[in-house]
Amino acid sequence: MKIKEVKELLNAEILNGIDQLEEEVYSACGSDLMSDVLAFVKHQGLLLTGLNNLQVVRTADMMDIRAIVFVRGKKPDEEIINLAKRKDMIVMTTEEPLYSACGKLYSAGLKK
């Protein structure tokens, strides 16, 4: 699924990577537990989370995650966005809660 479709489905605001809307993600994971992300996430997909701290980006970086969606209206601060910029990671924020954000992407064909 293209980043621009993710953005549209979730009515999300892009906070980093506006020039990367044509990028594809092939998998996604919704979690508020970084421990789980580190233990189970396969690779290079999209991470949806209700957490809002620097370790989200660091964890995503370790897992080669391409894009992070902060759900429930969480707005990461400048430090978080700057780190994502340095790691060339796409960051967006949506008002949707985690459950429905994942549901919408899943129904639209972004599986696992």
């Binding site: 979690s31 508020d32 970084m34 421990s35 789980d36 989370t49 701290n53």
Partner: peptide, 12 residues
């Protein structure tokens, strides 16, 4: 609250 502390680190 930061998303850690599930007791998964060492096994991982």
């Amino acid at each position: 609250e930061m998303g850690f502390g599930a007791g998964m680190g060492l096994p991982n």
